Amino acid sequence: MQAIELSLWKRGIPVTLSLLKDAIKKDKPVNVTSPVFAKTYVQESDRKRSTKENLLTTITVLQEFRPGFDFKDITYTFLRDFEVHLKEKGNSVNTIAKHLRQLRTLVNEAINQGYIPSDAYPFRKFKIKQEKGRKEFLTLNELRRLENLLVSDKRLRHVLDAFLFCCYTGLRYSDFCQLTPENIIRVNGKRWLYFKSVKTDVEIRLPLHLLFEGKALAVLERYDIVTDFAKIGLNSEANKYLAQLATLARIRKHITYHTARHTCVTLLVHQGVPITTVQKLLGHTSVRTTEVYSGVLSNTIIRD
């Protein structure tokens, strides 16, 4: 208890009975370093796997920037130098912003657990800069090129079909990968897709027979089991195959599985579907999020 008290006193943290109890209960190491604390917090937290991976990536980048850094090192100057370091490494403005947001999460947790005094919060005057990202989508012509692409390789065909299915339904990669036969139900004899979004936990209902003239159903019929269709491996690997498919279809865009979601929104808006309806189809809690996704085609502007 004396060691814990001295450790807190040295860091300028007022010692309270609750802090002592908390330190003993959790058996906190007295001289724990910032990276050790961060990794332990990430591993023990109930955050989603993707969020944990992002946090751990930021911790690795931080250790490359300042090996063995401690809590007292994380100051306004530390943040500014870290930002410059990331720029010199060739990172984009938004990638730098992502790392800084992850660091802010770790700093907030360190303050909550008493490792950093609240009055030493380094982000108080530090502004995280961010640029408006471009939401890449496919035009109707580009989508048709993919639809008409002749692919003999089974793996490439599987990745292409999954991508087209997501273009017709607006599914995220994470939602597509969790599909099972139970997600396809019949309402008045017509097939609907019912599922709960992995990211937002929102229940989504899609009339497959109405969206894009039922093209999603045509893709589904090529596969005996929905679960097998949904098994397309890691996102990064699937995106590499998508790059090959884009080249074969003469599409000069960097496309990923999330491009399918952007494409779905853009084409629905182009067809005249109200943005609030598109919001419900995508499972967004705010229509502002949907508006960010909806690119505007030149034809849409001319028609309007």
Rank of each mutant, 00 (worst) to 15 (best):
F137S: 15
D201C: 06
F71H: 09
V269M: 05
R104G: 13
C264Q: 08
E88T: 08
E291P: 01
G283Y: 04
K127A: 05
L248A: 13
H99T: 12
F69Y: 15
F195S: 11
F69H: 10
H270T: 13
N108R: 12
K89S: 09
E53C: 11
A3E: 08
F163L: 04
K253P: 11
L100N: 04
V202Y: 11
K253L: 08
V287E: 01
L140N: 14
L56E: 08
K253F: 04
V219R: 06
E53F: 07
T57Q: 13
R11P: 02
H209V: 02
R155G: 01
Y168V: 10
A3R: 14
Y257L: 14
Y194N: 15
N94L: 13
V265Q: 05
L146A: 11
L297E: 07
L281S: 04
K129P: 00
Y241L: 15
L267P: 11
D201Q: 11
K215P: 10
V202Q: 11
V278I: 15
T139R: 07
F229S: 10
Y168P: 02
H209E: 10
P67Q: 07
D46I: 06
Y194E: 09
Q279F: 01
A110Y: 04
K28V: 12
F212I: 14
V15D: 03
K26P: 00
L210Y: 01
E5D: 00
S50Y: 05
P274V: 08
R80Y: 06
I4P: 02
A3Y: 06
N239M: 09
V219P: 10
D224G: 01
V30K: 12
G68N: 14
D224C: 00
A238R: 05
D22T: 09
P181G: 00
G214Q: 11
K72G: 13
K215V: 03
N148C: 13
L79E: 04
N31F: 03
D27M: 00
E53R: 11
Y293R: 12
Q113P: 12
V269C: 07
C177P: 03
S236G: 04
I184C: 07
Y293I: 10
R66Y: 08
G90W: 07
I232F: 05
K280W: 03
H262L: 09
R124P: 08
L6C: 01
A243V: 05
N94I: 15
T200G: 15
T300I: 02
T247A: 02
K135T: 14
E131F: 10
G170E: 12
